[in-house]
Amino acid sequence: MKGILSLLVNNRPGVLNRITNLFSKRNYNIESITVGHSEQEGISRITVVVQVDDENVIEQMTKQLNKQIDVLKVTDITSQSIVARELALLKVVATSQTRSEIYALIEPFRGSVIDVSKESLTIQITGETDKIEAFIELLKPYGIKELARTGTTAFPRGTQRSTNNKSLSIV
């Protein structure tokens, strides 16, 4: 299963190293990790998406991360109602024949074209991982020359719903 952990950490030298190191030391698989400033100065938010066998492993991860001195808070948001986003950049082969077809695909995904050349289009798309993956699948037949994904960044919604249904994003 997939798990998502949201961390608040002191923005100090070596913190990221301590955290990624902990994952390799404990033999955990990171699918993606994003780091950036949080709303508080000197404190960064890290979002880690992990692939695990069961919930116990996520619990262990949470506890191990919590032991790090510079980790201020760890929240397992796997089963919470969250807002999660990822950004992807795709450079797709685009000939005069395929160009308009590709544009037609971008539309419903609310992607945007951010660079155009003779042979290719560079598209930016944001959303939840599923959506990004669906979009990549659709574009594969045209030939993806380059792909860059940021990995998921996330936090809990303002209001938690009582159901565990993952709310779908509206882009």
């Binding site: 070596g14 190293n17 030391k25």
Partner: peptide
């Protein structure tokens, strides 16, 4: 040494 000892220390510092 910070990198080397990260997994084998409870915490480590480099003084700036």
């Amino acid at each position: 040494i910070l990198g080397i000892t990260t997994p084998i220390t409870k915490h480590n510092y480099q003084v700036r």
